Simulated assay, not measured.
Amino acid sequence: MSQLLGVAVLGAGHMGADHIRRLDGAVSGARVAAVADPVKERAEKAVAGLDGVFVHTEVAAALDAPGVEAVLIASPGPAHEEALLAAFARGLPVLCEKPMVPDSAGALRVVEAEARLGRRLTQVGFMRRYDAEYIELKSLLDSGSLGRPLMLHCTHRNVSSPPGFTSAMLINSSVSHEIDAARWLLGQELTAVTVLRPRPSAHAPEGLLDPQFVLFETAGGALVDVEILVNSGFGYQVRCEAVCEAGSARIGDAHTMVVTSAGGAYQEVAQDYLVRFADAYDREVRAWVDATRRGQVTGPSAWDGYAASVVAEAGVRAQDNGERVTVELAPRPDLYGQNPISD
C-alpha cells in the first residue's frame, strides 16, 4: 500500500463532494485518486484544485485508475450493488454509504458475494456509530449501570424533503439510520415493525405522508419508537432517549450553541445532516482509512447493511397495509461471527 491510501470516490453529488473535501483536508493518510460521476462536470467541480485525480463517468474506469487502493461509494443507493460487486472483483476495500443496497434481495446478494470471498471488504456508512453522543450512550448501555434497556424513544426531523422524496423514503432513507442505531445500541435484531400515520403536515408536499410514527420490536423484548418528520420547517434534529430499568439517558439536546443577546437567548438548530454529524463523518472516514491501511475492515458490516434493508422493507409494507409486519432475515454467514451486530 502506498504512503497515502488512494481512494476512488463514486458519486460527486452532495454527499460525495463532502467526502472528497474530507479526504483532502480532514483525514490524514489518504488522497482522492479518482472520481466517477455520470455528470463529468459535477465530478470536475468536486475535485477542482486537487492534483493527480482521474475523473471518469464510468465506475469501472475509476476503479481501474492508477493509484486506486480503496473505494468510497457515495452514489445513489440503486447503483451500490453493481459498484460493490465491481470492488469485490478487484479485491478493493469499500466504505459504502447507506443504504448499502436499497432492496433486501440485492443486499443479500452482496452479503453472499462477500462471504464467498472469505473476508470482509465492506464497511457501511452508518455514521451515527461514530458520533460522540451515540458512542457515550452505547458505552453507558453496555456498562449495565442503568439495568436492562426497555425502550428507545427516537426523533428524526429535517427542514424539508428534497424533490421526488416519497412516503416510502421516510422509512428506507431516513429511518434507516434509526434502524441501525437501535440494533447497535441494544445489541439486538429488530423483529417486527408497525407504522402509524397521523394527518399529514400542512408543510408536506401533496401526497407525502409526513410525519410518521414507527414502532419496532426487538429480539430482546425492547421497544423502539421513531418520530420521523421530514418537513419540520425549522431545522435538522436527531434525538434518542434510552429508558432502562434503573434510569434513562437522552442524547441530541446539547450539541449546538446557545446565544444570549438583547435580553433573550436562543439555541441554534442545525439545518443539515452534514452540519449536525460533521464530526461523526470525520471519525467514520478516519477510522476506515486507518483500518484499511492496517489491512483490516471494521465498523458496520455488509450484514448490518442487509439487516437494515430487510427491516426497512418490512417498515414500508407496514406503512402500506397499516398492520404489524414481522422481520425475517436469511441465515447469517459465518464470516460475520456470532454477534449479529458488528461494532
Rank of each mutant, 00 (worst) to 15 (best):
L121N: 02
V111Q: 08
L170N: 10
H80A: 06
R90M: 01
R119C: 03
T155D: 09
E81Q: 13
H156A: 11
V124K: 01
T155K: 13
A113Y: 09
I135W: 10
G147F: 13
P76F: 04
Y134M: 00
A79I: 11
E44L: 07
D51T: 15
P99Y: 13
A83W: 02
P99M: 15
T122F: 09
A70K: 08
L140C: 03
L72H: 15
A61R: 15
V111A: 06
S75C: 13
G164I: 03
V159R: 10
A87W: 14
R119Q: 07
E82Q: 10
S174Y: 13
G67V: 03
L140N: 05
P162H: 13
R157S: 07
F54H: 04
A86V: 10
D142T: 06
R120W: 10
M100P: 04
T57H: 04
L85Q: 03
R119A: 08
V111Y: 08
A46D: 03
T122K: 02
R90N: 06
R120H: 06
I135T: 08
L141Q: 11
E81C: 04
R116V: 03
L92G: 07
A168H: 12
N158R: 11
R157Q: 13
E112T: 15
A79T: 11
P76A: 08
E58D: 12
Y130K: 00
V53K: 03
A48S: 13
A107I: 12
A168N: 11
T122G: 04
V159E: 07
G91I: 10
T166G: 00
A107F: 06
E58V: 14
V111I: 14
P149L: 00
A65D: 00
Q123S: 06
D51V: 14
F126L: 14
L108R: 09
A105M: 04
S160I: 10
A65I: 02
A60E: 14
A105V: 14
A86H: 10
V94C: 12
V175C: 00
L137P: 03
A43S: 05
H156N: 10
N172P: 03
L137R: 07
V111E: 11
Y134R: 01
C154L: 12
D64Q: 09
A43T: 10
V159Y: 13
S167G: 10
G91R: 05
A89V: 07
E114N: 07
T155F: 04
R116W: 04
L170V: 12
V53W: 04
R128H: 12
F126V: 04
F88T: 05
K98V: 01
R129F: 12
E114F: 07
L141K: 09
C96Q: 00
L50P: 03
V47T: 13
I171D: 00
L85E: 07
E114W: 07
A46C: 08
L50T: 08
M127I: 15
K98M: 09
F88W: 14
I171Y: 02
A62P: 02
P93F: 06
R90S: 04
R157K: 14
H80W: 00
P76E: 04
A89L: 05
L137I: 10
P163L: 08
R90A: 04
V68G: 02
A115N: 08
P66M: 00
L72P: 00
F165C: 01
S160M: 14
